[in-house]
Structures are given as C-alpha cells and as structure tokens.
Design a protein around this nucleic acid. Structure first.
Length: 485
RNA sequence: CGGAGUGUAGCGCAGCUUGGUAGCGCAACUGCUUUGGGAGCAGUGGGUCGGGAGUUCGAAUCUCUCCACUCCGACCA
C-alpha cells in the first residue's frame, strides 16, 4: 500500500465534509461530546486555543478602555421580557430554572421539590444585555459616567436543535462587551470600531480572512438597530459569522432605564453597543485551515508553536539526544515560544502523526545525526513533508519567528484565494438560482435591492440560503448570499 | 418538531434475512525483534449485544415499546 495516499483523517474533506470536521476534532484531541446533549467537553488542547484567543483579545480591548466584570448566569425572566424584539428573538432557545431544590420521592428517586418552586423563574443567560443594562442603569447617573465599557468572558446557553461541536453548541464560551455612550455617533462609531477589532483579530491572529459588513434587516440581532458582522468562508464554501457587533440605539437603555443627566442638564437615554466572539472561532479555524491529515493551527494561537520529536534508534544515544532536544526547547522558550518535546514512550511514527493531526505549526526532528552535526531538521505543517529542512540550531532559533510568520501568511493567503475564487457576481435572481442549482459553492454577490423581491425568499428557502451581509467595501449596495453554518 | 439512518469491547465494524457457546480490525497489556512519515511476530485482558417487555426449550438475531446518538431540514453565534 502506498503510504503517500494515506490520509490521517477518514473520510477526507471531499468525501464527507461534516464527518471530516468531527474527525479532525477527535484526532486533534480538542473536544468531545458530553453526556448532556448539545453541550461539549473542551479538552485541554482545544481549551488552550481558547485561552490564547482570550489572552490576545482581552489585551486588545483593555487597551481600548474596556473593563472586565462578571454578571450572573441567571437572569430574571422579567428582565428578558423588557425589550420586545429581544425576547421574541431568544424566547425559543431559553433554558429556564424553575426550582431551587431537589427532594426524594417515596421511592427514593430525586424529583423537583414543589415547595422549592421559584416565584419567578430564571433564564440561563442566552446573552446579557438586560442584566448588564439593569446594572448600568444604576451605575450611570451623569454624562460624566460615560462612556462606560464593560466586558465579560463567560458561558451562555441557547438551546439548540441541531448542535455541532464548536460551531453551535447549546452552551458555549464567549466574550460579550457592552458599552454605553452619551451620543448616537459615539455609539455607532464604537460598533464599527469593535468590528474592526474582530476583523483584525481574525485575520492577524487566526489567519482567517473575513468580510466586514452590515446584516440585512431579517438577520439583525433582536433588539439592535444595526448589526455588523465579519463573515468568513469555510473550505466547503459555506459562510460562517465569526463575530458580531451591534449598535443597539436606545432600545435597551429605554427598556432598562439607562438614563443620565446631560451636559445641558436634561435627562437623556444612553446609546449602547454590544459585541461578541465565541468558541465558534475554533470551529472556523478548523474549517478554514484543516486538511485531510487534520488540524493546521494558525501559529499565533497554536498551543505549541514547535513540536520536537527525538528520534532514538539506539538507546545508548538516548540521553545525548534528549539533552540536546531539551537545550533546544529551552532556547525556544527563552524567546517566548510554546514548545512541546515529546519524550513519551511511543513510536516515532506515531509521534509524528500525532503532531500532524494536532496541527503543530513546526515539527522538529532530532536524532543522532543532528546531535553529531549540531543541526536539526524541521518541517512545516502547512507545507508537509516536502518542506523538510536541515539547518544549525542557531539558524533555526534565529529564524523560527520568521517561519511562524510565513506559515501564518501562507494559511491566510490560501484561505483568501479560495474565498475570492468562490465569490460570484450575480446580475439577477434567475442567475442566483442557477448558481446554486448547479451545485456551486461559495457566495453570490448581487445588488442589495434584489432581496426585496418575493422570489428571493423562495430561492433562499429552496436552497437554504441566507443574506450574509452587505459588505462595507461595496458601500452597502451589494449583498452576499450563501449557505451558512 | 418533520424526513432518513445507527446503537454489539476504548474506537471502527461484522454477525440479524434463515434463533443454537460473542466475533473481526485498530487501540490496550506482556515478551522478543524493530525505530528518520502510522513496525513485525507471538501471547493476554477486556461485553448486562442501548433499556424494558413479549414469543421460544433457547433471542444480538423475531415482535412490541421506550431511550439515545448521527445526518438532512425548520431556529440560530
């Protein structure tokens, strides 16, 4: 059997994309399904990616004057109902807490204690606009208290009918930022600014090219005046909303009572924004960069930048090789890199495939030859075995950051090329239908006026399409249409 | 909630039509030989066959009934 033809992930992307996606997660040991339907267990390797996302983005928003805080998981039902559109949008996916105690029945089985039924049920937060708005209403008295910029890293729950790991789980992790401003202009500007932060983060940290744009009316966040989005295209041509930012107008400030004394002495309602990114980004990374051998981690959020594999043929060399490898690891760590030296007692081949499936950006091999010559052999995950290179330890240590940048750029460029190749300009609705009828993948780009047509709704329904966004680069005159996750 | 599948060892599956001692591959464990892109041989351990009820001398297999999961829709970051 030819080893070349063998892929680490079965099935391949072209054979069965959604099964491939599941298998990549499993092979990379990032997450698994939990006993609770719709909820996932994020394993250490997957969580490490999330921690890197948090670390990088948290630093960024703090530089922008945002402060972290924490608000309760449980939201009084009455809070959620304050904003009419908001409650309509989320009612169908709310998990509700109705009791605060369990008790044993006559058979010794646990049941809900009737005596402990809550007067007013709580909703497990699907998002926190209302409970944060309630606090802001108390905290903001004067224009001098504005702007107020708050963020929390937390979990939220939206009951899902069809969960998919990372992309759509009933419980997921995210950050939700909630900012309040004196004027409309400031708040709107903030919504755009946060979207820029997301786009920059997606492209420069995750190597995922995104299209910034505004959501059409039917796709807008419930309760928002304007919803902005970054849309990414996955390897199968489907769209994925990778981050959103909302200008909420005075909708929530009015329903939550966020008012302040203005400079003129009158009373005014604040203009608020909210903005979020979630663990979904990890799914986006998989479906943007992964290949038939598994994950390819974008270097800037990779749990390990470099994986070192000692190659021991003769146990007499073992100490020599391991010490050499440890020295290298120390040198790399001294540069702030994350390094994994695999000293485990498994076969070399298996170690290599393990690193390939986990998508470690650079793999370094060290055997007796390297120790002898003061060199090492390194391979780029994005380019595969053909990129195998030997050089001295010093050369590698001095160039490793450049190599990581090259990998980042390669991943970004690949994704960008694929995306742009799969955006098709469409003149009218019959062309739109023909495009998706022919089984084409990707986005259709067409005049935004066409979405008013009743036939547009039918085509969307027939081909499970949605309006993804009105890209800024088209001045809001065009709309991107595609299948979405 | 509709439509379609699947539940048998940690994972992937066969066996079911035609009822008769629970199987295979991978993984694990032991030993020897190996080791630069998934090693070979020999051996070992591991199961309420998704749950319950029924038919039968006998059920993984037939009948009924729950349950869970996956995929395709509707809802959505």
């Amino acid at each position: 059997m030819s080893k070349k033809a063998k892929t680490a992930i079965i099935p391949t992307r072209s054979e069965d994309f959604s099964e491939w996606y599941q298998q990549v997660i499993k092979a990379a040991d990032m997450a698994e399904n939990s006993p609770v339907r719709g909820c996932m267990i994020i394993k250490p390797y997957g969580y490490a990616v999330w921690e890197n996302i948090q670390r990088i983005f948290d630093k960024r928003i703090k530089e922008g004057g945002v402060q972290n805080a924490y608000f309760p998981l449980l939201i009084p039902l009455e809070f959620i109902s304050r904003e009419a559109e908001h409650v309509d949008g989320f009612a169908k996916e709310c998990a509700v807490v109705t009791h605060h105690r369990l008790e044993k029945d006559v058979n010794g089985k646990l049941q809900l204690a009737e005596s402990a039924k809550l007067e007013e049920p709580y909703v497990i937060r699907p998002t926190s606009e209302t409970i944060i708005g309630d606090a802001m209403a108390r905290w903001i008295q004067s224009y001098r208290d504005l702007p107020m910029k708050l963020n929390q890293w937390c979990n939220v729950m939206r009951w899902e009918m069809r969960p998919r790991m990372f992309l759509r789980s009933s419980e997921f992790l995210w950050q939700e930022g909630h900012n309040a401003f004196e004027t409309k202009d400031e708040a709107k500007e903030d919504a755009y600014k946060m979207l820029d932060a997301y786009a920059d983060f997606a492209e420069n940290s995750l190597a995922i090219p995104v299209i910034k744009g505004e959501k059409t009316d039917d796709e807008r966040f419930p309760g928002a005046d304007i919803t902005l989005t970054i849309e990414a295209m996955m390897l199968d041509g489907k769209a994925l909303q990778a981050g959103t930012s909302h200008y909420l107008g005075q909708n929530f400030s009015k329903s939550c009572g966020i008012k302040f004394q203005s400079r003129e002495g009158g009373e005014d309602f604040a203009h608020t924004t909210s903005w979020g990114i979630s663990t979904r980004l990890i799914g986006a990374m998989i479906m943007t960069h992964g290949d038939d051998d598994g994950m390819i981690m974008p270097p800037r959020v990779a749990p390990y930048h470099v994986g070192i594999i000692p190659i021991i043929r003769d146990y007499a060399d073992s100490d020599k090789i391991l010490n050499y490898a440890r020295d290298l690891m120390d040198k790399l760590k001294a540069q702030g890199l994350c390094v994994k030296l695999d000293e485990s007692d498994v076969r070399t081949g298996n170690k290599m495939w393990g690193m390939i499936k986990q998508g470690v950006p650079i793999r370094v091999e060290i055997g007796a030859r390297e120790v002898e010559n003061g060199t090492l052999t390194h391979v780029r995950r994005d380019l595969g075995r053909d990129s195998k290179t030997s050089c001295s330890v010093d050369v590698f240590v001095n160039s490793v950051n450049d190599i990581l940048d090259l990998i980042h750029n390669e991943l970004f460029t690949r994704a960008l090329k694929l995306r742009d190749k799969n955006i098709k300009n469409i003149a009218d609705l019959s062309e739109l239908e023909a495009f998706f009828k022919d089984g084409n993948i990707g986005f259709a780009r067409m005049d935004v006026k066409l979405i008013e047509d009743d036939d547009y709704k039918r085509i969307c329904k027939d081909y499970s399409l949605t309006s993804r966004c009105k890209p800024f680069c088209d001045n809001g005159e065009k709309v991107l249409v595609g299948k979405a996750y």
